[in-house]
Design a protein around this nucleic acid. Structure first.
Lengths: 200, 200
DNA sequence: GATAGACTGACGACTGTTCGTCAGTCTTTT
DNA sequence: AAAAGACTGACGAACAGTCGTCAGTCTATC
């Protein structure tokens, strides 16, 4: 199926160069067809881009759900650290993450609303997933912090900063920043009963 | 001076639409001239963009230096909170911040190296400034954390996440995230001698 | 104080290129 | 024979950039 080959090439190019920086000719060239042939599979550039975006958010959300299920019985810190590590490793082995990060940051103006609406829905959905885990953490007193919303927001801030650093291209710095932030974050979450948590 | 009017218009358009999404004709239209006239002031699109970028980093670095000087005698938490607040408020009143955030995230491919080199120099310079403040904080025992590098990295992660949220367009969420992260961050920095710090 | 010459910023008209898009045709597979 | 997929050729629109020109303005000379 060459519709798939088009998607793969487009995903990688959009991820690297953004929407405006990627021409259909370049996508076609990448897989050895003519740009006009793309129209046999997609209505146009916009259609190709948006279908990739929708597909990406669907896949990413499913992955998050699966991830949460897999780690649901684990300790909170184990789970969160795994989430961060997964984020970091995915960035290098999967263009999907890079694709949506870059293109939600600077989407083509005429698609701004559509992109933003999909992004916000995704963020909202993922947040609901994580919030649940933080709620059980609060009720089971895994952390001293009593506000699950706050713990979740601050954790998503960790993810954000790793994303920024990854896109800026310094893998080492991304890792260092993640570890530095994580330690302080976790200390902050468990501060009052630190003596119990420290030994984990 | 109309070179300046061009710069102002270009800064705002590049900030909103990125390099590839902004045409010289659009910039010219914005200030009521024809695109050819831009060439009387700049060698071309690339020259205009890069001069804006260089100027922006210079200005931003000077601002950081001035900011640090202004707050050098303040308590660490006062200073850091002011830094975060300044970042948040600048985003809405100054296109410079939006301009460099968006265009370092997804720069035009053919300028990737030049953009990245300038960005990394800026990050490095700002970091050296902040590190100094964290070092005195450690030596004066303002915080319990003994690694100034780590405290600084984690703080810059806070800045990153605010940046992400601002660009995603939700001012309220940016503020909420900042406050949530800040509280946990500060608690993490001061954890062991928390009883002394808490009352501040 | 009038005038000549250099400088400035903006212009219309134009180049070459690339963009997304479409209609029609050939080729391969079933 | 039908259908799908890739092809060729061509399209208007928009792109960055270049040319020669011209109306002002500033400056220096007489």
């Amino acid at each position: 199926m060459s519709a798939n080959k088009i998607k793969v090439a487009a995903l990688s190019l959009f991820a690297e160069r953004g929407y405006d920086g990627t021409s259909l000719a370049l996508i076609a060239e990448q897989i050895g067809i003519k740009k006009q042939s793309i129209y046999a599979h997609f209505k146009g550039k916009e259609d190709l881009f948006l279908s990739l975006l929708t597909e990406t958010f669907t896949i990413e959300l499913e992955r998050e759900e699966q991830f949460l299920e897999q780690y649901y019985t684990s300790a909170l810190d184990t789970f969160l650290k795994a989430s961060l590590a997964s984020f970091l490793s995915r960035y290098n082995h999967d263009n999907r993450l890079k694709f949506w990060l870059k293109n939600t940051f600077l989407p083509p103006i005429h698609l701004y609303d559509k992109v933003n609406r999909q992004l916000n829905r995704y963020i909202h959905d993922v947040e609901s997933l994580y919030i649940k885990r933080f709620e059980t953490a609060v009720s089971k007193q895994e952390i001293s912090m009593t506000n699950p919303q706050q713990a979740n927001l601050a954790f998503s801030a960790l993810i954000d900063s790793v994303a920024v650093e990854l896109i800026y291209g310094d893998q080492q710095r991304a890792t260092a920043k993640m570890e530095a932030s994580w330690e302080i974050y976790w200390k902050g979450l468990t501060a009052t009963n630190r003596d119990f948590e420290r030994g984990r």
